[in-house]
Design a protein around this nucleic acid. Sequence first.
DNA 1: AGGGAAAGGGGTGAAAACCCCTTTTACAGG
DNA 2: CCTGTAAAAGGGGTTTTCACCCCTTTCCCT
Lengths: 211, 211
Amino acid sequence: MTTKVVIVDDHFLLAQAIQELVNSFEGFETLYLCKNGKELLEKMKYPANVPDIILMDVNMPILNGIAATKIINETYPNVLVLALSVEVDEDIILGMLRAGAKGYLMKDTEKEQLQEALEQVIRDGYYHTNTIAKLLVGSLVKPKEGVQLKDRELEFIKHACTEMTYREIAEAMFLSPKTIEGYRDSLYEKLNIKNRIGLVLYAIRQKLFVP
Amino acid sequence: MTTKVVIVDDHFLLAQAIQELVNSFEGFETLYLCKNGKELLEKMKYPANVPDIILMDVNMPILNGIAATKIINETYPNVLVLALSVEVDEDIILGMLRAGAKGYLMKDTEKEQLQEALEQVIRDGYYHTNTIAKLLVGSLVKPKEGVQLKDRELEFIKHACTEMTYREIAEAMFLSPKTIEGYRDSLYEKLNIKNRIGLVLYAIRQKLFVP
DNA sequence: AGGGAAAGGGGTGAAAACCCCTTTTACAGG
DNA sequence: CCTGTAAAAGGGGTTTTCACCCCTTTCCCT
């Protein structure tokens, strides 16, 4: 019996291309392609459309890979999700794995490695390259220093990433300038930074603010 | 006679996949794949390896698409370069076109569109989607406000994107704090910004500084 | 030779940012 | 009801930044 694969990727050219690759592997066939997570979930409502393996892109519009994977894992625990991405961002990779992806393939993978991944994930239930394995270990060593930011602080940070003065930020947030200064000071403490530039850099690196 | 195509992309899986697509088109065949511009130029030293069309990724290590395209265009003016990228950054698209690319394909292109592009570039010498055409017009309308920054100013901007005070920046650049303030003030003027945050945002958006 | 950028340096006052510490307010839990 | 805690607001003093002025030196170009 052949293993049924579904490819979810908004880069349609890539999706079609991978489809041809997968179809060329013995014992594998592509059921259909999807452009995003939403489309995939719609399809999978019909039992005939539930595959064995989903090759899932991470960066997609509408319903991204992480969210989609999470839902898949809860709804169809027997479906194996393999992440497929150019993204090398640690947070994103870990996000996918936490969401229940059984492996993470870079898009510069060789043809043979894709086949290997598909076969291993069927056999063992997971597939991890050395790169990803190393990352996993790293994330255990450094447990992601859980600096907990409150809603109001996040809002403030976003404002701080503009040319507004603190007085203007205070007005925009309907607070006293002094309160804003309070937010700022406690953030400086928590995040171990010295001035507003540090705050902006933190925000950008944590993707709280997109420049 | 078949049209010979070469695919240059460090995402090897994608490259292989596109290869299979291209080979499935009537009248086209893939000569070989390359992982970057350097590899391509090495190959093309042998006349038998000079293709009719190059499908060129933009983001590559070692020798990127823009640089490679420029060299190809000077050395082999008869070779048609089609850019192939996920990149939607206006500067990069324009860079590729200025470097001599005959078209710019998004990686979410449909199979049929790729075939169309290959055929049209052979027939007419170019291929542009509506999206790209619109971009081209836009770039003519807004002639890229040529704010000319001097070396010393660029150096200062990079320092300004850190938690250093101006005094510290002055020390790092072996200048008087006053000179630094001079740079700052004239940049505020030139760039039409009000404070250091604006400068940081400008630097990031212009890719002078990568966070 | 002279005019004009470009680069480096300087002064001052006002505003903003920074830092520490207190008070008020509000509200949940014993 | 009282208490503890956390958000909000504030006071006051120091440093930094900002936004104006000003000057000299160097170097390039016609």
